[in-house]
Each structure stands twice: as C-alpha cells, then as structure tokens.
Design a protein around this nucleic acid. Structure first.
Lengths: 107, 107
DNA sequence: CCGAGTGTTCGATGAGAAGCATACACTCAT
DNA sequence: ATGAGTGTATGCTTCTCATCGAACACTCGG
C-alpha cells in the first residue's frame, strides 16, 4: 500500500494567489520570521513543526504554520506522526522576487 | 529671512535604523500601501498629506504618515501651511533592496 | 486681527491577532 | 490495546492597531 494517512491533508495556498499585504504581514511577525529563517537553513522535509526553537506554546505554533501555509511560504506533508516542512523558495521567489532573500539576509 | 517655521519639525527615521519586521509591517497596510504607491508616481515634494485619495479621516491619515516616517519610507517638510512628502526611494532601496520595487510593481 | 485651510494630538471605540490551557485526533511502538 | 509523541481545534483573555470625533496649533490671506 502507499503510505495512507487518515489525517486531513493541510490546505496549501500557492504563492501566486497571495496578495502583497498578506505576504508582508506573514513575514512581519518575529516568530514566523524565525521559523522561515530556521527553515531556510535546513534541508527540505527535514524539520517537523515541533523542532523549532521559538518561545510559544504548541497551539500558537500550529497557528503560525497555518499562516505561513496561507501565505504560500511553507509546504507541509505528514510523515508518520509528525508534520514535516519545506520552504517554498523557488515558487515564492517567482511571485515576490527578492523578498525572501531580503528577510533571510537578515538585519 | 530664511523660511521660518515655528512648527515642530517631524521626526524622521533613517531606513538604516529600521528593523525588517517594522518595514514589512509598514507596507502590510492597504492604506499605507496606497500612499506609497501614489507617492511613487508623483514628483518629490509635490504632494501634501491631504492630497491623497484614501478612505480615512485626517486623524488616521496623520497616523499613517507617522508610521511611514518611522519606517524610513517617507520624508516630510513643512511648506507654508502644508506638509509635503517625498518617497525615500534610494535610501530605502539601499537598506531593503528590491522591496520597494516589489510593492510598487503591484499585484 | 480674524477666518479658512491644514495637520497633529487626545480619548474612546471596535476589530483583529497572538497567546495560553485544555481537550481532541491521529500514528506508531510496545 | 495502551500509552507516548505530535499536531490541531476550541474557547478565552489580552494587546495592538486602525479608526473616528473633537479639540488644538500653526500658516497665510484678507
């Protein structure tokens, strides 16, 4: 059998459908900014949601990932009991050229 | 005499001192986005604060300009009874390369 | 000196976002 | 089957931010 998950697949939004203010708002939060940066420094699908060092409870963390998905920044896939992540670098870059580079280059 | 204004000069923040989240947050608001875009299409110092077509009262408008100043996006100067504006294109671009182009290119 | 025009400040209001704690759902190893 | 690990959903509190109305300050032309 193919790997069967009875869990609801997370809803994803393609960067092309993301309005400018939504993308900016998603990246304007310090916690989400940390997530994106940490994700950029890791291999695709190598990080589960709980593996990030951010000072919020897991409920808030789950919410932040939902926002990142909605902004077309992150793709998620269920892998066993964990939900692993990937930064949608190329796609997001095509829609918002330079934006990701800018926030990753940091301060 | 040199033009003397007894009015308090507006406080400006140079783009270099603006943190990434602040810049993004400033541009994430639709009203401010309109202001910046409209300002980009006008000559420097040609637009007074009240000359923008945004659906908010003047109190809110004044607040938005304060935010834009604080984000290093806009420079203001008093000219008679009016306060005229300039988009700090070059300076902001040096600090956040591509960001202004991105929000101006629109959707 | 007065009044029109322009912009800021203050106080209050309402909406939205972020946070937590709890309860729930799913997967996997034992 | 049971329990540990992981993430989501719900309900609630709190805080921030955008907005408005009204009052105030300044400039300039009559």
């Amino acid at each position: 059998m193919a790997a069967s998950s009875h869990r609801a697949a997370p809803e994803h939004t393609h960067p092309d459908e993301v309005p400018v203010p939504a993308a900016l708002a998603a990246l304007a939060d310090p916690v989400r900014l940390t997530l994106v940066r940490e994700l950029a420094g890791s291999a695709d699908w190598s990080r589960s949601c709980g593996s990030f060092d951010v000072p919020v409870g897991k409920a808030a963390l789950s919410h932040h990932f939902a926002v990142l998905r909605g902004a077309g920044l992150v793709e998620q896939r269920d892998e066993g009991p964990k939900r692993v992540n990937r930064l949608r670098r190329a796609e997001f870059d095509a829609r918002f050229p330079g934006l990701l580079d800018l926030v990753l280059r940091g301060d």
